[in-house]
C-alpha cells in the first residue's frame, strides 16, 4: 500500500489520534473511556502506520518493542497495587494524593493502574497485529 495520499493522511492523523487516546485515558474516571479504550485507539496509530509504511517502519516509529510495552504495562499495574500492602492495608487499596492535578483531577493509584492497562493494551494489540503482519509477509 504505497499510496502517497494514505501516507500523508496517516502522518497527519496520527498525532491527533495519539492525543485523542491520551484524552480518553485521562477522562476515563469521569466519562466513558479509560485505559482500555485509550490503549486501543493508540494502537490504531501504529496499525495505520503499518498499513501505510510496513511493519518494520512501524516498529521503528514505535521505538520500543511491543513486548516491552506489555511488560511495562503489567509491571505498572501490579506496582500500583502494592503500596497499600506496605502500609499494612489490603492489596490494591487506592491511595490518593491530597492535591488535585490539572486535567486529571484527583491523582491516585487507580489512575496508575489504568495507565498500566493503557500501555498493556497498546502492547498486546501491536504485538498481535505486527506479528500477524510479519507472518503473512
Amino acid at each position: 500500500m504505497n499510496s502517497l495520499i494514505l501516507k500523508t493522511t496517516v502522518r497527519f492523523i496520527n498525532k491527533l489520534l495519539l492525543l485523542f487516546s491520551v484524552f480518553l485515558l485521562l477522562r476515563g474516571h469521569n466519562e466513558p473511556g479509560g485505559g482500555f479504550v485509550g490503549g486501543l485507539v493508540a494502537s490504531t496509530v501504529f496499525i495505520l502506520y503499518t498499513l501505510s509504511e510496513g511493519y518494520k517502519e512501524a516498529l521503528a516509529y514505535l521505538k520500543v518493542s511491543p513486548f516491552s510495552l506489555i511488560i511495562v504495562g503489567l509491571t505498572t499495574a501490579i506496582l500500583s497495587a502494592l503500596p497499600s500492602l506496605f502500609l499494612g492495608d489490603a492489596f490494591m487499596k487506592a491511595i490518593w494524593l491530597e492535591t488535585r492535578i490539572p486535567i486529571i483531577g484527583k491523582f491516585g493509584t487507580p489512575f496508575v493502574f489504568d495507565l498500566g492497562v493503557y500501555f498493556l493494551v497498546l502492547g498486546i494489540t501491536l504485538s498481535i497485529v505486527l506479528s500477524l503482519r510479519k507472518d503473512s509477509e
Binding site: 516491552s68 506489555i70 511488560i71 503489567l74 509491571t75 501490579i78 500492602l85 499494612g88 492495608d89 489490603a90 492489596f91
Partner: peptide
C-alpha cells in the same frame, strides 16, 4: 497476615512478569 493472604496471588504474578521480562 495481609501479605500472607495475598501471597498466593502476588508471588506467581510477580515472578511471572519478572520471568517474562528476563
Amino acid at each position: 497476615n495481609n501479605v500472607l493472604t495475598i501471597a498466593p496471588l502476588l508471588l506467581p504474578m510477580l515472578s511471572g512478569v519478572l520471568l517474562l521480562s528476563i
